[in-house]
């Protein structure tokens, strides 16, 4: 389902969670949603899932306002860090409950997934470990088989093997049944290869939105003699820097063309890639604030 937000704003009292956010997410991709704590990720996802209404601006999912829209809400699975199941009921009941309510829910697949995660289905949800609760949420999300599936920090507390199992299962399922998936996470490098496109939001604003490889290509680390680096980065957006003696490493935001690369080589500078996580840290750190609107696209 295509998601389009136009000047989307959400306020909680005096707090601005989303600030005139405008973005268009075509259907059929895996999106990474990155942002610091309190940046507005969960608020954005809650609006998309119809869990609340925006203060102003417009949001459409599949061409319609998602709030109280039975078709959109029925076609959206939003897995939060808090598992949506009654603590007193066994995990098996949570699967049955979802199967009762969602015509698309694949109960056999859910039981298969639960087996792969080693979920004790007979145990009460309240008695599950943090990681097991997350696994239950992931199972509910994957087995929902909805056109739009959202995982918001859904794998908190899961151990590394379980997380990698989730990534594999998600990818397998996505290949077999393409749909729109949004993953909100802080484990950026671990999941980065899953993302086809990445959105970065900070303080309720869109800081970056691009294909993952394109985004990675936006950042370049320039390393070399301090004076040469200073000269090279002059007039460019420097996201961060490190100095060691006479050597300086500067992270530059923006694509370098062939002439830039030639000039860097002539000046004896090394150009290196920037990891998605590093770029994220730079984009959402205080130094990035002046760049927020420039990076907006």
């Amino acid at each position: 389902m295509r998601i389009t937000a136009d000047n989307l704003t959400l306020r909680y009292g005096d707090t601005v969670a989303l600030d005139a956010l405008t973005v268009d997410l075509p259907a059929g991709s895996i999106y990474g949603l990155l942002g610091r704590n309190g940046s507005g990720k969960t608020s954005l996802l809650s609006l998309i899932a119809g869990h609340r209404r925006p203060t102003s601006g417009t949001l459409t999912v599949g061409g319609a306002d998602p709030f109280e829209n039975a078709a959109v809400m029925g076609g959206t699975a939003f897995v939060r860090d808090v598992v949506d199941a009654t603590d007193a009921e066994p995990a098996r009941a949570a699967l049955r409950f979802a199967a009762d309510l969602r015509p698309t829910f694949d109960l056999d697949y859910a039981h298969d997934l639960a087996g792969q995660f080693g979920l004790p289905l007979g145990k009460g949800v309240g008695g599950l470990s943090r990681g097991q609760k997350s696994a239950l949420g992931v199972v509910l999300g994957l087995a929902a088989r909805t056109p739009l599936t959202i995982f918001d920090e859904a794998y908190l507390g899961m151990d590394a093997p379980s997380r990698y199992l989730f990534y594999r299962l998600l990818l397998d399922d996505y290949v077999a049944d393409p749909r729109t998936v949004i993953l909100s996470t802080h484990l950026i490098e671990e999941v980065a290869n899953l993302f086809e496109k990445v959105l970065v939001i900070d303080r309720g604003r869109l800081v970056a939105y691009d294909e993952t490889d394109e985004l990675r290509g936006r950042g370049v680390t320039v390393t070399g003699p301090a004076a040469a680096v200073d000269a090279f980065v002059a007039g460019r957006t420097v996201l961060g820097e490190q100095r060691l003696g006479g050597t300086r490493a500067a992270t530059v935001y923006g694509r370098l063309d062939a002439a830039d690369r030639a000039r860097a080589a002539d000046a004896g500078l090394d150009l290196g890639p920037v990891g998605l996580q590093d770029l994220f840290v730079h984009l959402t750190g205080s130094a990035a604030e002046p760049r927020a609107q420039e990076a907006h696209r």
């Binding site: 119809g50 109280e68 039975a70 809400m73 949506d84 309510l101």
Partner: peptide
């Protein structure tokens, strides 16, 4: 919340 989380609207 459990029902809305499973795709049911408030009015339903």
């Amino acid at each position: 919340r459990f029902f809305v989380a499973n795709g049911i609207t408030r009015r339903h």
